[in-house]
């Protein structure tokens, strides 16, 4: 496993020291979870999500009417950097 590549996909800038620690640990965890290959699941449906049958049939659709949202002032109130009603970030390109 190329831990540095995985870290990049996960938007983490890990150090050489971390690569040395994580590589054997993650290999061990992956080897552990591979015990699932002992099981023949060719005729098993995947369980998607955690809903119970009653949860599946609950009508979660609300009426399409506007309601109060957080609002701009509150939404921006804890931003590390907010300017003129926007979140400010370092340059994109």
């Amino acid at each position: 496993m190329d831990v540095r590549q995985v870290a990049k996909l996960a938007h983490l800038e890990i150090t050489d020291e971390e690569v040395a620690i994580y590589t054997p640990q993650m290999k061990n965890i992956v080897a552990y979870v591979e015990q699932l290959n002992e099981l023949d699941t060719s005729n098993v449906e995947p369980m998607l999500g955690g809903l119970t049958p009653e949860g599946e049939t609950t009508n979660a659709i609300r009426e399409d009417i506007p309601h109060q949202s957080l609002g701009q002032e509150k939404a921006l109130s804890q931003a590390p950097s907010a300017v003129a009603g926007h979140f400010q970030v370092p340059k994109v390109l």
Binding site: V6, A10, H11, L12, I14, E18, Y22, Q25, M26, P90
Partner: peptide, 24 residues
């Protein structure tokens, strides 16, 4: 840059177990 900001913030902000699980 924005991308560098994501990488650095997450690298410095998350602890070891969280990083391990995000990567897994």
């Amino acid at each position: 840059s924005l991308r560098e900001n994501y990488y650095k913030t997450r690298e410095e902000g998350f602890g070891a177990e969280v990083k391990r699980r995000i990567m897994l």
